[in-house]
């Protein structure tokens, strides 16, 4: 084999390899089940007062107390909402999609702004890959083993509808960040150090990545609480207000609707990101009808 043939051979082998590989077949694998001991129905109060917002620590006032969920909304909780909303006829299912009404946004025709008109919006696609909610006998239920995992594949409309229906709302970015950071200038909810013991991030070698590869799956809410799971030792990653999963696991929709843009903002980073995306002031955004396997949410309510 001469030089050029050798180089060509190696190149072809590598390129061929790049097109192969097994698909992340979540449905066909057994999910490890862990009880984290954290109650997803619990809420905490964030007291009014100043905090340091953003990377550059801008002193920001929040002049009211509010309550926020201790964990992201789980599959079990969202399934319960779907059943309840279905019986109240505030949602409708058609072509494997769940629709609900949204009153629309003011449209300013700004550069790259999309118009969000009033009408029925998709809240969740029931055939979305990685969705751990299924229908059985006309009822929505969380898939076995996934009950205490954060719900994913929810659009912003679906997240907002859930929070509204429970007497709350999606947190504003300021509310979310204060709840994650507390009143000092830390970069992560638990402090400034970050390792895979603190949060579900990319290639963090948690017990779920053993079965599902480096992007793994979501971890049960409250997983990073100092407990050990099959030898995987976690650290207590609560925020100063006692919130779990404010960094990593799933991005979380925030509720702000800003003028001149259709984007909705996401906070917290996810299981698919490196550590720098998990910083409390880090922002991501997407169209309100976007949904993915690493996007979830939690709610706030007035005190």
């Amino acid at each position: 084999m001469n030089r050029m043939e050798f180089i060509t051979f190696i190149t072809v082998i590598l390129l061929a390899g790049a097109t192969s590989g097994s698909v992340h077949a979540q449905e066909n694998k057994t999910i490890p089940v862990f009880d984290t001991g954290v109650n997803p129905n619990s809420w905490v109060t964030v007291a009014k007062g100043d905090f340091f917002a953003g990377q550059h620590n801008k002193k920001t006032k929040v002049d009211y107390d509010y309550e926020i969920m201790v964990t992201p909304v789980t599959n079990a909780q969202y399934a319960e909402y779907l059943n309840s909303a279905s019986s109240r006829h505030t949602i409708a299912t058609k072509d494997n999609k769940v629709f609900g009404f949204y009153p629309g946004d003011k449209f300013n025709k700004h550069n790259h702004e999309f118009e969000i008109k009033a009408g029925d919006k998709v809240q969740i696609k029931l055939d979305a890959q990685g969705l751990a909610i299924e229908t059985r006998d006309g009822k929505f239920i969380a898939k076995s083993g996934w009950e205490n995992h954060p719900v994913v594949q929810i659009t912003w409309f679906g997240a907002k509808a859930y929070c509204d229906s429970n007497g709350g709302r999606l947190p504003s970015e300021v509310e979310w960040e204060k709840a994650a950071r507390g009143t000092d200038t830390r970069s992560y909810p638990w402090g400034n150090e970050v390792t895979s013991a603190y949060a579900n991030l990319y290639a963090s070698k948690d017990p779920f990545e053993k079965s599902f590869g480096k992007q793994g799956t979501t971890t049960p809410v409250g997983f990073y609480n100092g407990r050990s799971y099959n030898g995987f030792q976690t650290k207590d990653a609560r925020s100063p207000y006692g919130l779990y999963d404010m960094a990593g696991n799933v991005w979380q929709w925030s509720g702000d609707v800003y003028p001149n843009t259709h984007y909705r903002w996401l906070r917290g980073g996810s299981k698919n990101n490196y550590d720098f995306e998990l910083r409390v002031y880090n922002r991501n955004s997407a169209g309100p009808d976007y949904h993915d396997i690493d996007i979830g949410f939690r709610c706030v309510r007035n005190k």
Partner: peptide, 11 residues
Amino acid sequence: STYDQQPLVDW
């Protein structure tokens, strides 16, 4: 999709 991306990301 994100769900199916891991082999492509790895390679």
